[in-house]
Write a protein that binds this DNA or RNA. Structure first.
Lengths: 340, 340
DNA sequence: AAATTACATGAATCCGCTTTCAATAAATTG
DNA sequence: CAATTTATTGAAAGCGGATTCATGTAATTT
């Protein structure tokens, strides 16, 4: 890119100093109306657009935030990213998305990278509950907020989440009301707070309803389509199989539905399935998945706004934002009365 | 963030000049092994990480690329973004994703923003075919490459796409082979090259197969679930309805399937549906959508690699990259023989 | 009208690194 | 061993704006 025009060029053309150009650029007072106009004209005829990098260096603000997700191809994150991206745009913030693997190292690297890029703040939609690096950041007062996650060990952490435990209980209760007594539970790794909480909810609900807690009905490994599919397939083929499956994410529920189909079980007649998240496809009539809604839009918008207010608040000792929304049970066609 | 450590602090501790610190940071030669070690030690004890902003300003490289998409919550883009994000990570590039609305202004703003941020290059996965701003960039020799899009009027444009016209023909031919003679076509706005080409393919195939071209079977409005749903619903209820639907995107095919369900038509017995893209959910057994595969992964990886090579090539007059991959017909369960 | 006060503007410095350029020291060469 | 080369290193000048300070000018006050 040869010959970018600089503020200096604009200054020359408008016959003012560079400081004045900077003033009109930042809409500062103390510039005569006529001068301001002259500068604007110069900017237009030259097609000047300020170098945000230089600007950031001088102002120590990048107008960029980081968003760490686990897998942007996962609808839940994609839909979240969409909302955050669009919302950030309104406030003239750009966002660097990092699609970090789930291991601790990737996560730390993500944080370091964003730190290097001097983002103004970070939204974490992916992390184990115990990451050390994050704590350091918090302690330095860096604006960081968790989306649908919590980090334990940091009392002052900011987060926006849905009441995952309650959501899980709602799901199980719904199944119990439909006379299911043997309910499988499919979870991701419980080092993640969401999965942890949903698991807690499942256990409590099982206990509250006087059901038997059976380890063999529990999956809590990787969030892998194939693995979940295989696990569910095995259960489906079992003589004494569960009559219902509660999956901690819709994505995993999809794998379960797949397994049901492959093993000839009909939903919801032979087996009920309920998910968690309410991703878009869940409402498609061919899927029509019963689920627990996360209220993504509210969560995402709130998260962004809280982050921006953290960034722009002078004193950093406002009390931490701990926001917990109530989930919602959405009954569609994958859950029905147990008739076995 | 008080008291960030700077390269200057490192220099002092290591008893060298800041230039030397910069040298080891960039792994330049001409630093005695012992000195290098001393600097590394200082970096570690201080926990120093360089300010990438300052670095970018000085080096005129941001190691950041821009990705403009239309709607990241759309699986096709989400899956693409995932691949690009992960691939870019390998080369230490960050990516700023802009989720631009479809109007011309948003797109121009996206380009301007990325220009301001001084990204090293841009991948455009969303644009009309005739955007002026893009041309200007091209003319300046700015690395920009189109993903699954072309821009007409720029001979030198770089793009990676699938043969959309061929794909459309494959879809129609498949339907014709199944004895369908009345095939509806659902397209997004044909100012987008993909839709344009697919439409061309549809028309050609209709003609080649001696079918009647019927305007009333064509939708080419916004890519809106509700609108497509409504359009399809009306057709479904028609006396003399089409026996098959070819949708330019899987997302729209989903809306058509929805409409079929709502109007009591059974797929593929009463009506066949074929999409385009092969998004992930298409292979789910409950959806099992016949479609044309875009070979997203190859496209995405190629696009990123070409972009990086554009960025790092000294002379910018290598011939333009015009890559067209062959699509693939994937027959699943939404298409069948017409028996009416 | 002199004294204040508010407004407009430019010069100079800084942001935190990279990159010459020049200087010094060590290694080679004839 | 003197003459070159080559390897190390530091000082200083950017990169392109933001910001502080000083200066000059117009608007207000007594």
């Amino acid at each position: 890119m040869k010959g970018r025009v600089s503020a200096y060029d604009v200054a020359k053309l408008a016959k003012v100093s560079q400081s004045t150009v900077s003033r009109v650029l930042n809409n500062y007072p103390h510039v005569r109306k006529e001068t301001r106009q002259r500068v604007h004209d110069a900017i237009n005829t030259l097609g000047f657009s300020p170098d945000e990098i230089a600007r950031s260096l001088a102002s120590k603000k990048t107008n960029t935030i980081g968003l760490i997700v686990e897998d942007i191809s996962n609808s839940f994150y994609a839909e979240t990213a969409h909302i955050i991206l669009r919302e950030a745009q309104k406030y003239d913030y750009e966002v660097i998305i990092i699609d970090a693997e789930t291991d601790e190292n990737s996560f730390e690297r993500a944080i370091s990278t964003l730190n290097g890029k001097r983002v103004d703040g970070i939204i974490v939609a992916s992390t184990r509950m115990d990451n050390q690096k994050v704590k350091e950041f918090y302690d330095k007062g860096f604006p960081i907020i968790f989306y649908n996650r919590r980090i334990y060990g940091i009392e002052e952490s900011h987060y926006v989440e849905v009441d995952n435990k309650l959501g899980a209980k709602m799901a199980v209760n719904h199944l119990v009301e439909n006379k299911h007594r043997k309910i499988a539970f499919i979870s991701g790794p419980t080092i993640y707070s969401t999965f942890y909480q949903r698991f807690e909810g499942y256990k409590e609900a099982v206990q509250d309803n006087g059901l038997e807690y059976d380890e063999s009905l529990i999956y809590k490994g990787e969030v892998s389509y194939d693995q979940v599919f295989q696990f569910a397939l095995n259960l489906m083929r079992d003589e004494d199989r569960p009559t219902a499956f509660f999956a901690s994410t819709d994505q995993m529920a999809l794998a379960i539905m797949d397994a049901a189909a492959r093993s000839g079980r009909h939903i919801p007649f032979d087996v009920s399935v309920i998910g968690f998240d309410d991703i878009e496809i869940a409402s498609n009539p061919y899927i029509s998945l019963s689920t627990i809604s996360q209220r993504k839009r509210e969560m995402a918008v709130l998260t962004l706004q809280k982050l921006l207010s953290l960034i722009n608040s002078d004193d950093s000792n406002d009390e931490p934002n701990k926001i917990t929304l109530e989930p919602e049970l959405i009954i569609r066609k994958t859950t029905g009365v147990n008739n076995q």
